[in-house]
């Protein structure tokens, strides 16, 4: 799979602001394909997790109500410039991806 996650992590004072963009269709399961007139099966991210220093700093349970190509932003303390943050997601079809980024 191509890269699905884009991460920007920026440290200001003692707080790290993380912005995450994931490429994902986020199908609700109620939309019809305009050509085949068949329902497009539900396909959405269920879990997004962020880890720093091996510790989970952010965890989200998400439903199909999150927009296509989801964007999340959050802030946490306990990491500084140069530290690595790892973002991972899992969807309802068992697909998953993770990526690491360095805090700037």
């Amino acid at each position: 799979m191509a890269e699905t996650i884009k991460i920007r992590a920026k440290s200001t004072d003692d707080t790290v602001t993380v912005k995450v963009l994931v490429t994902h269709p986020m199908e609700t399961g109620t939309r019809k394909d305009s050509k085949t007139k068949k329902l497009v099966p539900a396909h959405f991210i269920q879990e997004v997790k962020a880890e720093a220093h091996g510790k989970v700093v952010f965890h989200a349970d998400t439903g199909a109500g999150v927009a296509k190509n989801p964007y999340f932003a959050f802030k946490f303390k306990g990491a500084s410039k140069g530290d690595t943050i790892k973002i991972s997601w899992v969807d309802n079809m068992g697909n998953a991806d993770s990526r690491e980024a360095v805090v700037k």
Partner: peptide, 27 residues
């Protein structure tokens, strides 16, 4: 939660170890 959505719950964020802020794009 978006009460008027067919499935109202959009997302739930566990912020025990982070700041009380979250930003997201929803339908």
């Amino acid at each position: 939660i978006v009460p008027n959505n067919p499935s109202p719950l959009v997302a739930s964020f566990d912020l025990t170890d982070s700041e009380p802020f979250v930003s997201v794009r929803i339908k």
